[in-house]
């Protein structure tokens, strides 16, 4: 085999493998990069915007409204302004929690049997959650 053919085959293989490999790697990793970039764009906005958005002044993420449980306590959690005092008031228990630097707060509240209404109050806003403690005979 002459030298020209060997060089041609080697160059052809290198170009083909590079192109195919590049295509494979791009399709595999580019969506991940795009999703990571999306998170990076969203996170600072979520940290900055709550004060500007009235609906974001107090959010209760747990428990769900009109939910039931068999545990005699429930963790009340949510987000509000960083450092804000949060009053959590229910049928037989109450807590005053402080939101952390990210605005997250959390506290365990005791429940009585049957319907419990949990009021979460901060910054002149109250959000209620209705939780029913199932009776275990």
């Amino acid at each position: 085999m002459d030298k020209e053919k060997i060089i041609t085959v080697v160059i052809g293989l290198a170009v083909g493998v590079t192109a195919a490999g590049g295509y494979f790697l791009a399709t595999k990793y580019l969506p991940d990069l795009a999703s990571k970039q999306k998170i990076i764009n969203v996170t600072p906005a979520q940290q900055v915007l709550p004060a500007a958005s009235p609906s974001a002044a107090l959010t209760v993420t747990n428990p769900d409204d009109y939910s039931s449980t068999t545990n005699d306590s429930v963790t009340v959690a949510g987000q509000t302004a960083p450092g804000a005092k949060v009053i959590i008031f229910a049928n037989i228990d109450d807590r005053v929690a402080s939101a952390d630097a990210q605005g997250n707060f959390s506290a365990d509240i005791k429940l009585e049997e049957g319907e419990n209404i949990i009021s979460v109050t901060t910054n002149n806003t109250t959000v209620n959650r209705d939780v029913t403690l199932e009776i275990i005979p």
Binding site: T8, V9, G12, L13, V15, G16, A19, A20, F24
Partner: peptide, 18 residues
């Protein structure tokens, strides 16, 4: 011609890698 041929072969075999 040889480069094009090898490139096409490489693309056809790509699904096996993926």
């Amino acid at each position: 011609k040889v480069i094009i041929f090898i490139t096409v072969i490489a693309f056809i075999t790509r699904p096996a890698l993926a």
